[in-house]
Design a binder for these strands. Structure first.
Lengths: 119, 119
DNA sequence: TTTATAGTTGAACAATCATTCAACTGTTTG
DNA sequence: CAAACAGTTGAATGATTGTTCAACTATAAA
């Protein structure tokens, strides 16, 4: 048996039919992994605040630092994460870098989350 | 100045009007913190797989362990997280515990996430 | 009552990650 | 050119967290 096929699970199969049926309908491993990675970006309150703020208005790094009462460095690190996830875009104007949201789905995702936690 | 009011930010305010305006419209600190906590649950591929599976069908712990090729213990730990976040419910039938989704928004949240990563 | 199995739980370990700090780049202004 | 400031970056640190392991509970069957 190949290493990748080793069975790690420590129990007998109880409902083989259900397992097979669900297995067939599941998206592929990599896609679900990417989905979890996507939600990792939403799983930090600083990034949530930044995205919420940018949904209200385009802002520069200093503005965000003042708004959230954090250092420019901390903000910049998180903006890097948001850039890599293609959730924000930016434009430079002299020394100042203005960030804004790149994706329309963000607010919708926030709304769905809010619906759950407000129940 | 009280400790909680200390200014940590290391820069001058560039656009005070924008900062004020956005600050007024931002939800309160705690609510955004809860929102990030909610997305933390979606930020792990094992939990994403479990939720996706339970959206297809009610399943017991053993079925999930076989489906995802993991130990019952690992699955059980993650189900605990999902229970605490009120995302799954369960019913006991003898020795077997059947889990199912509790929230209707889950699939919608997955869809929005998929829309982003498929672009 | 003994055995077997489904499931849970707490501690330990390894990996991940947010923030801090210091050093750096690049642009503007005097 | 030199000083000042917006922003970025890499390393270090502390905190969080997913999985493993072993021990445990509870139910069912022999």
């Amino acid at each position: 048996m190949a290493k990748s096929e080793q069975v790690i699970c420590d129990c007998e199969v109880i409902h083989q039919d259900i397992v097979n049926q669900v297995s067939d309908r599941m998206p592929e491993e990599g896609e679900l992994y990417d989905l979890a990675d996507f939600f990792k970006v939403f799983a930090d309150s600083t990034r949530v605040k930044i995205m919420w703020a940018l949904d209200e208005s385009e802002m520069c790094v200093c503005d965000l630092a003042v708004l959230l009462n954090m250092t420019k460095s901390a903000i910049s690190h998180q903006l890097r994460t948001l850039r890599q996830s293609k959730l924000v875009k930016y434009r430079k104007e002299g020394k100042v870098v203005y960030y804004s949201l790149k994706d329309d789905h963000i607010k919708e995702i926030f709304e769905k989350g809010m619906e759950h936690i407000r129940e």
